[in-house]
Design a binder for these strands. Structure first.
Lengths: 344, 344
DNA sequence: CTGTTAGCGCGTTCAC
DNA sequence: GTGAACGCGCTAACAG
């Protein structure tokens, strides 16, 4: 041990593997082998090294390790909004699935902006992540395919086939049909739809499910009943205000996601319209909080947490060279108190 | 350019700085200088190199760079729950403040478990983050002080002084007083409190604020009115159910956070008790969604987003050797429709 | 089983 | 201005 360092540096010097090796009286390679279990080491040396590691409080340098090994034990996750309740659940699922693999998720946000998404992905790749999970977003398919040539990639919210790539899509169309059908079954005919942004594939599919359920039930879809919003609470509120201002009659609302359903419900409330007595409301996503709003919201369950888990597990498999596999559960309608039979 | 590689490797080989240098006909050092602006380079070479970088789609290896420079341009963020609506806002603030600094946040979750928190922090440090933001959590002060000897550290939710460390604490006590005083001003005397977990400093402070506001108003605090919950919706719901089952009379509820206020509000609803007509409800945090629940929730605004921004900005400053600085805004009560004068 | 050697891809002296 | 040489901390390949 070098005890005659003249100036004790301010910052505690980082302990290196080489220092551990020297103090334990072995070679760096041996320490490395113990750390990685990459070869058998005599019990005596192992004990000595482990003691030194503990004593010196040695912490391996992940950068150096990554450089040498060519893998970083980290996977990049592109979400869109770090505070989104929906994607938040997906992130929880990812975290949980990764927990015991030794890998750590590097989470960045794309804000639904192509520019941000590309910039963030490049950032992740320059950090040499071992794989990538892209939660929906607005990247063109070709770009995803190209990124998949660099690292294994799992993308949600679209159907896409390609080498080194897996996609996970929830059936928005069927989910929207179930929600609409539920309202039809309750006797509703004038069903409004608070749509999502129409540059989102999910929104389009949900709108289509809504329309086709109506048609199949012999109800003529009325464009006046479709209001466009943005998947957020204020948008849902404005949408219903519009509808009311235009005096368009309706007895039920199917919102393209729970957040806009919350806004819609508040708009109804401030007009003195009761839910579900006067008007039924159905959402989409089944956020954790939707079970605790008043009245609890009937909603199509989107398995966000499971989606995260499935994506992460599949990605880890792909990184280890296994074929991509994993499927999302089928849509499911969770009926709660916000919807009830039309009173006549 | 080496065109005679016999076997085209499956994975596209990573472009290295050295390859860029060779194709551009300059030395690696020159490319490095251009990349980092660390020295003047002739316009001719610069143009040539930049062209090659674009053409080869060169992406610098952040690991190698970190190893060589001793900094990684990443800062570690320990949150508690990646899907928490409250901490989610803080993360947004952090992301935003870091956006133009070139640094990227590495976000990990501690789940309020000491074990997880330590493990995650060690993970971040082994990745050689340049600094650390710890969002509350349950680490003892001494540990934080020790971590601060390794990297600059900002911690929220507590008061702590130390070298290389900054703490940011919101005044929970004053906030709770404001909430309680608001209800007192409205004529309420039987005010229930749905408390948070009592191993959280915030919970204790909010309970204290509640109690002292009552005392100062000449109202004798009644322990029967204090129910313990867990900062989550189900806990708030159970708490109110308990209160009702025990037939403890009350006309208002102050919940230790918005999520338990939601649960409380639902419990009241399912007992046919109206808010605010029969009972007033006040929360704490002012989550984004609290403005959109029915009725919109009166709440103490905790500036989570700003907190994240302030923490990140301060940390960046500290990393650059500036003294720690930054303060949180004062508590503020946002009055909405969930509270109203006691009818007599 | 163990030590020695040679990189991983960059930044950074230090000469020229 | 520019290039050659070395080192960041670690793993891998090769000897023994």
């Amino acid at each position: 041990m070098t005890t005659d360092r003249p100036i004790p540096s301010e910052l505690p010097e980082n302990i290196t593997l080489e220092m551990v090796a020297r103090t334990a009286g072995v070679s760096p390679a041996t320490v490395s082998r113990i750390l990685n279990g990459s070869a058998r080491v005599s019990e005596r040396k192992r004990a000595a090294v482990e003691a030194v590691i503990k004593e010196l409080n040695y912490r391996p340098n992940a950068l150096a390790r990554g450089l040498a090994q060519g893998r970083t034990n980290s996977i990049g996750v592109l979400t869109q909004d770090i505070a989104s309740p929906f994607y938040g659940e997906a992130l929880r699922g990812i975290e949980n699935a990764l927990k015991d693999t030794g890998a750590i998720p590097l989470i960045v946000s794309g804000h639904w902006l192509l520019r941000d998404e590309v910039e963030r992905l490049e950032h992740l790749l320059s950090r040499r992540v071992d794989g990538l999970i892209v939660l929906t977003g607005s990247l063109p398919d070709e770009m995803l395919l190209r990124y998949a040539t660099e690292v294994p990639l799992v993308v949600t919210g679209r159907d896409l086939e390609g080498p080194n790539l897996m996609s996970l899509r929830f059936d928005d169309y069927v989910g929207a049909r179930m929600a609409t059908q539920h309202l039809i079954d309750l006797g509703h005919k004038r069903i409004a739809h608070v749509a999502g942004p129409l540059d989102h594939f999910d929104s389009i599919e949900r709108l289509r499910g809504y329309r086709e359920a109506l048609v199949d039930a012999g109800i003529q879809p009325d464009d006046d009943l479709v209001v466009h919003a943005d998947f957020h609470e204020p948008g849902g509120l404005l949408a219903i205000n519009q509808l009311i201002a235009a005096r368009t009659p309706f007895t039920a609302v199917f919102a393209a996601n729970d957040q806009s359903a919350f806004g819609a419900r508040l708009a109804l409330h401030s007009h003195g319209i009761r839910v579900p007595e006067d008007i039924s409301v159905v959402g989409f996503d089944d956020l954790p909080v939707s079970n605790y709003v008043v009245p609890p919201l009937t909603s199509v369950k989107q398995p966000a947490y499971e989606m995260g888990e499935i994506a992460a597990r599949a990605l880890v498999g792909m990184i280890h060279g296994e074929p991509a596999k994993g499927r999302l559960p089928q849509p499911e309608l969770i009926v709660r108190a916000s919807s009830r039979p039309l009173r006549r």
